[in-house]
């Protein structure tokens, strides 16, 4: 069963990591489309071009990326009121608490996770209370 109201964007410049996260996400049981982007700019372009969709986007966002890093992406989203429904989970290899604190100052960031994601982590993200507020019927297998 799919959830047409949700799309998950995986944003990372590391293709292997994108592959792994996409795999683990699907194994976690979520039934929605995933879109793979290699930097923030690609993700932003995708969201801009699909803003008319009756879809809410969940972005799993890496921080350190070329072209547009995660922080720049967050700033760009904040400057686009029409993307206010976009929800973001930061996924970073950084371990500093300061990075996490900084990320959570952005209103659309609902979680911060360290790489690599696991199947269990993906399941917790999708089933989190914060995400449920937006999706009453997040569908899990």
């Amino acid at each position: 069963m799919t959830n047409d109201g949700l799309k998950i964007l995986l944003v990372d410049d590391d293709k292997i990591m994108l592959f792994l996260h996409d795999t683990f996400l699907k194994r976690s049981g979520v039934l929605c489309d995933t879109v793979l982007c290699y930097n923030g700019q690609e993700a932003l372009d995708y969201l801009d071009s699909n803003q008319a969709m009756e879809t809410t986007f969940l972005v799993l966002l890496d921080i350190n990326m070329p072209v547009m890093n995660g922080w720049e992406f967050l700033g760009a989203i904040r400057d686009r009121p029409y993307l206010s429904k976009v929800l973001i989970v930061m996924v970073s290899s950084a371990t500093e608490e300061s990075e996490k604190s900084r990320a959570l100052t952005f209103g659309q960031v609902i979680d911060y996770q360290q790489k690599p994601l696991t199947v269990e982590t993906c399941r917790r993200i999708i089933g989190s209370e914060k995400l449920r507020r937006f999706f009453d019927n997040v569908i899990l297998e």
Partner: peptide, 12 residues
């Protein structure tokens, strides 16, 4: 941590 996390993910 970039190659390390990749390693961990691949092992998983």
């Amino acid at each position: 941590r970039a190659p390390l996390t990749r390693l961990m993910g691949l092992v998983q």
